[in-house]
Every structure is written in structure tokens, then in C-alpha cells.
Amino acid sequence: MFDNLKIMWHQGKQFIPDVTNAKVPGIFRGRPIITIADVDEATLADLCPTHAISTQPVSIDLGKCTFCGECSVQFPDKIIFTTDYHLSTNVREKLIIHEGDENPITVDPKVVRKEIHRLFGSSLKLRQVSAGGDNSCEWELNASNNVQFDLSRFGVDFVASPRHADGIVITGPISENMAEPLERCYHAVPNPKVIILAGTDAISGGIFADSPALNRDFLSKYHIDLYIAGNPVHPLTFINGVLGLVRKKGLRRLRTDF
């Protein structure tokens, strides 16, 4: 008993009070900035493993980018990765970063369906479906609920059954072999429901985009409510993305004194 209290005491305060403005340690590769520096654009675009870079002018599609960082290593004056982990949006085009863009990526509240704010603003239960996911996004989604990131304090939880869920979070490029289970799971979720794509693989197929072993038809059939970029998604990216979607005024300030 006293041992347990001692152990608890030794942990100190672990949770991150302000998940929106917290700084991530080190050189995290988040939202890139593309400068107007003059470079050999063809070489730059060609080095990208997932064809995320377009030219004239240069842009990067974060829905395709694997955040490998190679472009910025080879063209350090042109591409600079910031540590901004706000990489979620409900408008697919907003994941495309253009030359000179320095604005944060946000969820556009105007295109969020009315009922989402009303019904899910303070409670959102999610079913996760890994469809060819490599277990890195899954890993980070689990981390989102550890004592540091503590996702459930915002009323957001992962649940075991689609029947208890308000939406699904898809990770992975959607393998052919998972296409049907995914579809079935989606139909088992009661209406209204949201679809969230977590990670580059889910958003664009990532490095697997042209693999014949995938079946991404699901994505063209249904409305996607949220795109969360990352390889894998950072827990803070996920938390901010989901709250940005379901809460009208974004993230209300949180009590930090408990």
C-alpha cells in the first residue's frame, strides 16, 4: 500500500496540461515551410519516394509525404521542417503546402457537418480499424491515451465494438484483404458517424500507393471527415485534430490546476 503510494508519488505530474501549445522535444518533423529559394526543382521532386513534391512552384502534399526529411537534408535552404504538429484538416487540399505558406493547418469549422459539433462535441467514441497499417500509427494512437497525452480527459475514447462507436479511425493503406472487414465495420457503426484517416498510408496509400495488393474503393464511397497527416501520426497531432473536428471553438482552455 505505502509502496504503491510511493511509486505514484515518484511519477510526479506526468500529463501534458496544454496539448495545443506544448512543445515537442528535439527536431520533430512537422509542418514544412518551403522558401522561395531557387533550386533545381526537377531533382528535388525526383528524390521524393512518394511523389509528394510538385514543381513550378514547389509544393509538398503532406497527405503523401512520409516525413522522411530527405528533401530538407538535400535542399536545406528550400525546405525547412518546423516542429508544428498541427497537421490535421477536414479539407484535403489544405494538406498541400505551397511556397511561402507559413499558415498553420486547421480544421475548417464551416464545412463540418452541423450534427458533429452538436452530438460529439463533448463525447466521441471511436472504433479503430487497421487496414494494412504497419503498427506505427496504431502504436501512437495507443500512446495518445497514456498518462501523458491522456486523450480520454477530452471525452474521446477508443471502444471495442463498432456498435458503441460514433465513427472509425482508419490506419494503413487499406489492403485488399481488409477492404470487406472495413466496410462491414463501418456499416455496424450507427448514424451519424465520422470517418478519420490517420497517417500518410491511410490518406494516400503512402509508399504503397501503387501496390496491386490494395483496395481503396471505400474512400471514394464515403465522406471523409478528417485527415491527420504523419508517419506515424504524433499523439498531439491526433488529439488536436479530433478536437478541432468535434469542438466548435476548437480546444477550450483546459483547467491545469487539478
Binding site: V24, F28, R29, E70, P232
Partner: peptide
Amino acid sequence: TPIVNFLQEWGGNRLAKG
């Protein structure tokens, strides 16, 4: 967390991608 965050401090990714 401190271990994966160290990987991020070193290489920019918690799971050492890149």
C-alpha cells in the same frame, strides 16, 4: 515516452523513421 522522445531528438521521429 522518454526513450521514444529521445529517438525524436536524435532523428525527428519517435519510431526512428528516417
